[in-house]
């Protein structure tokens, strides 16, 4: 793409970079602040004034977070649910959305109303719990995969993209004798990378971060997710601030950690892996992908 070299355009570029630097500062600082808190001595942190760099460096907060070997199984469960759950969600929802986005779909307004209602009206937790009990989903890994497999909000986003795809693609494929399934898998999916990347990201982050389902619907330690594990640590530690001696038993230098610095360490440990996947998905947002597929 060529760039405009006019003076106005250059002024705009400078202004734009300035805005971006401002956004970087405003969004980076809180995260950075948490990172330094996680590396700072807890006792020292309480005295305030730790703003840009750890004042008394320690790894004690991370030692506490990683002290228990069940963290490995919790990571495994979370990774498994994130990978399987995201894949299942994206496939199931996008296929539905493609069918739903077809203009000639009979009963479309019924399906739309039917779906929209589920976005606003829920029966609440207790009926859901009873349903899961009857379906055998309680304390079962599938409770992480099946209930979040479909959400109508993502249908709306998907179909908004699908409907922008020129109808001519579909028509030319039909002439070649393809049915809609073939068209979807062969043509539509490859053309929809930006939206698939976005929904994949949303879903993966949802799976990675969710702990409520683990807390309410499972009880086995083997099904514990990383978020639940770390939520427990934070709660245990803030309880431990009060249970002074218990903290004393857990680590030699009890003053090296407190619930706030542990919370910060926990935040880093839980968010870093999922943040890492962003750059991989990000490239799909950056460039247009419709290029040359069909003459619109």
């Amino acid at each position: 793409m060529k760039y405009d070299r006019s003076i106005g355009s250059r002024i705009f570029d400078i202004f734009n970079v300035f805005i971006m630097v401002l956004v970087i500062f405003v969004t980076l600082y809180p995260y950075w602040y948490s990172v330094i808190a996680s590396f700072n001595h807890g006792n020292d942190y309480l005295r305030g004034g730790v703003n840009f760099w750890p004042r008394v460096f320690t790894l004690a907060n991370y030692t506490v977070v990683f002290q228990d070997r069940t963290i490995l199984s919790a990571y495994f469960v979370t990774i498994a649910r994130t990978v399987i759950g995201t894949f299942a969600h994206v496939m199931f929802t996008s296929l539905f959305s493609y069918g739903f986005s077809r203009k000639n779909l009979m009963g479309k307004s019924f399906y739309a109303t039917y779906g929209l209602i589920t976005m606003f009206f829920t029966g609440g937790l207790i009926p859901t719990y009873i349903l899961f009990k009857n379906l055998g989903l309680l304390d079962n890994f599938l409770v992480y995969i099946i209930p979040p497999m479909f959400h109508f909000w993502h249908v709306i986003i998907f179909q908004a993209f699908f409907r922008e795809i020129p109808e001519s693609i579909n028509e030319s494929a039909k002439i070649d004798g393809a049915n809609e399934y073939t068209i979807y898998f062969r043509l539509i999916l490859p053309l929809s990378k930006p939206v698939i990347a976005a929904i994949t990201l949303f879903t993966a982050v949802f799976h990675w971060n969710s702990f409520f389902d683990a807390m309410v619907f499972t009880s086995s330690r083997s099904l514990q997710t990383i978020q639940l594990y770390l939520t427990r640590i934070i709660l245990t530690r803030s309880a431990a601030t009060h249970l002074a001696s218990r903290a004393a038993e857990m680590i030699a230098d009890q003053s090296a950690v407190n619930s706030r610095t542990i919370q910060a360490a926990t935040m880093v440990v839980t968010s870093l892996p999922i943040i890492m996947i962003y750059p991989f998905l990000q490239k799909h947002f950056v460039k247009g992908l419709m290029l040359g597929s069909v003459k619109g």
Partner: peptide
């Protein structure tokens, strides 16, 4: 998807 919503959204809606 319609069946899914029936099971996981509409059945508990008696709540």
């Amino acid at each position: 998807g319609i069946i899914f919503l029936f099971i996981f959204s509409y059945i508990p809606m008696y709540g």
